[in-house]
């Protein structure tokens, strides 16, 4: 009989951002069902004054890390200590630390099928994430593959900087407009950059999606409010699945490798097929 409730330790760099908040909601739901308490270490609520990670991972039954909230050497140290650990939306290349991630390649495939196959757009711009982050390079590689499938050319000037930053994305789109570059669709490596791109286009009087179709990756209430068409896995569900993976390990199941969740296309502003 286990008298003391067991604890899941969560490392996140923020618990109020939409993504992290939704992951936590899913984790809390499963933890409550399975009789676990949740201890959260959010070390950098104020990005200007980041705090060190203080979670004592020896004192909890398992550790769940959201996105890139902890450096890889810390993740590896926790993993090697034998404390069960699961990563959400993050993966350490070459390591077998269990993780729950979304299917970037499938998401881009669905997205390009919609933009090119259904909406008939032929002149696409890709707003890049950070190419050294997993989500960034996987989405970009998948985009290059899918364009080839439709026999569309991919000159380098069609890939513009975004850095997963709305400001950088907006600046890139403004530069395209200033240069008079012609395009009829923008595929953005995440939804925040997609929203920024859409706002930039609207500010110049372009009609969306008639003149330019803008799509993003990932979903949150902001994307819904902006009417952005996107591909996404349910983020709360991602939290639930990660909690299940972690609890399964705590309860004695050996898990290694990555669980990949399917994403689906969410069309918010239907296109007129061309």
């Amino acid at each position: 009989m286990n008298a003391k409730p067991r604890t899941l330790g969560i490392i996140t760099n923020n618990q109020h951002n939409v993504f992290q908040r939704n992951v936590l909601a899913g984790v809390r739901e499963v933890a409550a069902q399975r009789g676990y308490t949740v201890a959260i270490d959010s070390y950098a609520e104020d990005p200007a004054r980041p705090q060190p990670i203080t979670l004592d991972y020896h004192a909890v039954d398992g550790v769940l890390v959201i996105a890139n909230a902890a450096p890889n050497d810390l993740l590896q140290a926790i993993y090697e200590s034998g404390t069960p650990i699961s990563l959400v939306s993050h993966h350490v290349p070459g390591s077998s630390i269990p993780a729950v991630i979304t299917d970037n390649a499938q998401g881009i495939t669905e997205m390009v099928r919609y933009v090119v196959g259904e909406c008939g757009r032929r002149s696409l711009i890709f707003v890049r994430g950070l190419p050294d982050q997993r989500d960034g390079f996987e989405r970009e590689n998948a985009f290059r593959r899918e364009l080839m499938r439709y026999n569309l050319p991919l000159p380098d000037d069609r890939f513009v900087p975004g850095d997963f930053s709305p400001t950088v994305a907006a600046r890139s789109i403004q530069r395209l407009l200033d240069n008079g570059t012609a395009f009829d669709a923008i595929v953005s490596a995440d939804y925040l950059m997609g929203i920024a791109a859409a706002e930039t286009l609207r500010a110049t009087g372009l009609r969306l999606p008639d003149d330019v179709l803008v799509v993003g990756f990932g979903d949150a209430p902001e994307a819904e409010a902006a009417g952005l068409t996107t591909v996404a896995a349910d983020v709360v569900e991602q939290g639930r699945r990660a909690a299940r993976q972690l609890i399964s390990q705590i309860e004695g199941q050996r898990i290694s490798g990555v669980t990949v969740l399917s994403v689906r296309l969410i069309v918010r502003a239907p296109c007129d097929p061309r």
């Binding site: 993976q245 609890i247 390990q249 199941q253 898990i255 290694s256 490798g257 669980t259």
Partner: peptide, 11 residues
């Protein structure tokens, strides 16, 4: 193979 099955059994 067991790693794969265990990973899915958790879900």
């Amino acid at each position: 193979l067991a790693d794969v099955i265990n990973g899915l059994l958790a879900q």
